[in-house]
Amino acid sequence: MEAIMESHYIRVLPFLFEGLVWTLIITGVGLFFGFILGAIFGMGRLSKNKLVYGISSIYVEALRGTPILAQILFIYFGLPDLLGFNIDKISASIIAISLNAGAYIAEIVRGAVYSIDKGQSEAGRSIGLTRSQTMRYIIWPQAFKRMIPPLGNQFVISLKDTSLFSVIAVGELLYMGQQYYGTTFAAFEALTMVCLLYLAITVPTALYLRKVERRLDV
C-alpha cells in the first residue's frame, strides 16, 4: 500500500489536479465567449447583407484555416508587439479558445438555424411577428436543440486544444505533467495520468452526449 502511495502515479496527482482546474476554467470561459462569438458570426453567415456575410465568412475561414498553435503564439507573442502591452497567459489562452471555438460554433449555429424548415419562419412572419421575434421565439428554440450535440463535441475538442497552450507555459493539465517529469524523469507515469484525466472528462461527456442525441432524435 505504501509503495502505491509513494509511486509517481499518485505523487503526480496534486500537480495534475491543479492543471486540470486551469484546463477546465480556460475551456469553460473560452467556450462561453466562443458561443457568443459563434452566435453572432453564425447569424452573420446567414445574413443577406453582403458586408455582414463577408466579415463573418472571413472570421470563420481565417480561424478554421489556421492551426490553433499558430493562433495562440500570435495572440501571446505577436499581438503585444503590435499593441505595445502584454497579455497574460491565461487571458491569451481564453482569447485563443474563444476565437477558435467561435469560428467552429458559428458553423454549428449556421447549420442548425439553416436546418429549420423555411415554413417555420414563414408561419411566424405571416401572423405578424417581426423578423427578430420570429428568430427569437420560433427559429432559435428549435435550432438550439439541434446545436446541443455538436456543441458538446466542440467542448471535447476545445478541452483537448488547451493542451497546446503548454507551449506558452500555461499551467494547464499537460504542462503540469511535463513539469513533473521534468524534475522526476517519471515521464511514463506522469503522461499516463495526464491522459487518464483527459479521458475522465471526455469519455463521460461523449456518453452523455450520445444519450442527449438519442433523446432529441424522437
Binding site: D117, G119, Q120, E122, A123, G124, R125, S126, I127, G128, L129, T130, I138, P141, Q142, K145
Partner: peptide, 20 residues
C-alpha cells in the same frame, strides 16, 4: 408589413405549426 400581416391570416399546405 408586420401590421398588415396581422390583418391577413395565412394557412399553409404543410401546416407549419411550431413543434416546440
Amino acid at each position: 408589413i408586420n401590421e398588415v400581416r396581422t390583418r391577413v391570416g395565412m394557412v399553409f399546405q404543410h401546416f407549419n405549426l411550431f413543434p416546440h
